[in-house]
Amino acid sequence: MTTSVLAGDIKGFESKDQKLKLYNKLQEIIDGHRNAVGAPIRIMQLTQEYCGYLPLPVLEVISKELDISFSQLYSILSFYHFFTTVPKGKYVIQVCKGTACYVKGGQKILDSLHKEFNLAPGGITADGKFSLDMVRCLGCCGLSPVMAVGDDVYRKVKPGQIKDILTGYK
């Protein structure tokens, strides 16, 4: 395995100890799946599960180890919304902007998050606690507008409630 994991600057894995752990985990993931069908996707999925996102130095290692060019690997990654190369918050907020939620005020939730928490879709709060994703449907249009924090789903959310909801997360 190449050494770039240890050398690169990786948010969330700053100390030497964290880097070594990441290095070992990555080795385990790659060795376990390198011959599987669709190995790049499976390996990136498991790596993102561990890291919370896909750091670039890690992608360079995967590219080298699987003997697939960086551009091709990134092409796969950027095709799927699931993959992210920026760190996610401790809690991921999802705000729905599908038709029903939009009509019922989904945009207002986004506006409020932007105004009160300086949080835009794709962004993360300064303390790293919350990140925000805009989604197209959470599958419960009857409860619109819908917002989810981690695995908790909030129904018929009004902009005024957001502060209270988020203060519940430590």
Binding site: L59, F70, S71, Y74, S75, L77, S78, F79, T85
Partner: peptide, 13 residues
């Protein structure tokens, strides 16, 4: 890189 209306050609990242 990317898809839909953000699709471009490039080295990625």
């Amino acid at each position: 890189v990317n898809r839909g209306d953000t699709l471009i050609v490039g080295p990625g990242a």
